[in-house]
Design a protein around this nucleic acid. Structure first.
Lengths: 145, 145
DNA sequence: TTTTTCTTGACTAATACAGTCGAGAAAATT
DNA sequence: AATTTTCTCGACTGTATTAGTCAAGAAAAA
């Protein structure tokens, strides 16, 4: 629910792999450099992402990471949900934030939190990694005239 | 953008004042008890909220806090925006989370973050404090049969 | 057999958030 | 006037989460 720095890195790593997908494996160090992510930290993140099945890796000389499904079949929601679940296995459905679930004002606030959660994930789920890549090329075109 | 514990307390305090509005001033200690908020912390929060103009206070014997506008004319968005701005004067418009605004993947992610922000505030802005109060009475009715 | 690159888990550091505290100033009460 | 109540203000501390590091090892290719 909460988009941490780590989650943003995860998203950017996937994004980077998507752009590179048809050119084979990509090294951690290259991804780190391209996306300005601390390399050592990225190691942790990518090996976590492996467990989602969205990426695979190969070790050694021509090793690296690779995005498995085509980017148009992965949504941002898929990635965020995976990161969320693997970092916070117990999750408070009513809450938008890092949440300790107190009274919550009884149930007065719950409908609103639920609306927010739905609205957020609606957007995450309909946004594919390919959409993000397209955004960038659109933007580059705009910048370069 | 990020709903912290403090912001939730602020919202619950306003909610409590709304319920009590026609009965005059309400003491910090009573609000704290009713909403399960640490009293000393609530002092800080309420005196911060005073600067928004949504609440006023009076000291001394029969002192306490009071909600100024009618609850149907205050939106959740009003409160959240005020808290957000007074806690984080510099705010990154592109970001949903605690954000350090790095590359952000160029502008690839920005449209999505903007959509999220708009969607969230659309809900916050259309939800009034009175709506929350109504939720609760509706819920109590459901519970009590 | 050397180099490269991922793998794993434990470790440390930084920061933001949460909450506390003490001394003081109005306002009413007695 | 003295006392009690309640808000006021700013500085202070603790703590949990997040962020990030490190070292030793294992596969894969050269």
């Amino acid at each position: 629910m909460l988009v941490t720095q780590k989650t943003q890195y995860a998203l950017r790593a996937i994004f980077e792999l998507a752009k590179h997908r048809d050119r084979g494996l990509r090294k951690i160090s290259d991804i780190a450099q391209a996306q300005a992510i601390p390399e050592r930290f990225l190691e942790v993140i990518l090996s976590q992402l492996k467990r989602s099945g969205f990426v695979t890796s190969k070790r050694g000389y021509h090793g690296g990471y690779r995005l498995v499904p085509p980017p148009e079949r992965i949504s941002v929601g898929d990635i965020l949900r995976f990161m969320e679940q693997s970092d916070h296995p117990l999750h408070c459905i009513a809450c938008i934030s890092r949440c300790k679930c107190p009274l919550d004002g009884g149930c007065a606030f719950r409908p609103m939190w639920n609306q927010i959660e739905d609205a957020i994930y609606h957007i995450y789920d309909r946004t594919t990694i390919q959409d993000l890549v397209n955004n960038e090329t659109g933007c580059a075109a705009a910048v370069n005239g």
